[in-house]
């Protein structure tokens, strides 16, 4: 498989790789167990810095999307958190917020608005790359 990399794009190269891997998994073109081209091969093919590819692969590994396998390289993880799993992880935090909302007699609509503004705020100040 080949990545489509545009060095002159406003999107940093490592992010282009990360987003493409995610898209290819969503669309089913990459499936659990499939291996990705080596850092070396991607770097050579596109004449880019291997550290950039390594950064992208490390980020995906941290997210649990890729697994490093000795002798093979990076493969798509077998057990990725499903959408339901992720939602299940969110419930406890929101139940705690619900408890506070009820105790303080806060209107449901207003509580929603607070959550919305938190989400917006988080996106703006999101810590960037996990180095």
């Amino acid at each position: 498989m080949n990545f489509d990399i545009t060095p002159a794009s406003p999107t940093p190269i490592y992010r282009q790789i990360v987003e493409q891997v995610r898209r290819l998994i969503s669309s089913g073109q990459l499936r659990p167990g499939d291996d990705l081209p080596s850092v070396r091969n991607v770097a050579l093919q596109h004449a880019i810095n291997p550290m950039t590819v390594s950064k992208a692969y490390s980020m995906l590994e941290t997210e649990g999307i890729l697994t490093r396998r000795r002798g093979v390289g990076m493969v798509i993880s077998d057990s990725m958190p499903t959408h339901q799993d992720k939602l299940a992880l969110l419930r406890p935090a929101l139940m705690a917020a619900t408890q506070i909302t009820r105790q303080l007699n806060i209107d449901d609509v207003e509580a929603h608005a607070v959550f919305q503004s938190c989400l917006k705020e988080w996106t703006k100040n999101e810590p960037n790359d996990p180095v």
């Binding site: 850092v39 070396r40 050579l44 291997p50 590819v53 390594s54 490093r68 093979v72």
Partner: peptide
Amino acid sequence: RDFMRALFIGHDLTDDLPG
């Protein structure tokens, strides 16, 4: 392009080693 590639020869980050 070949020059850019040549800059990184011999410092390959092989995939099963940290670097």
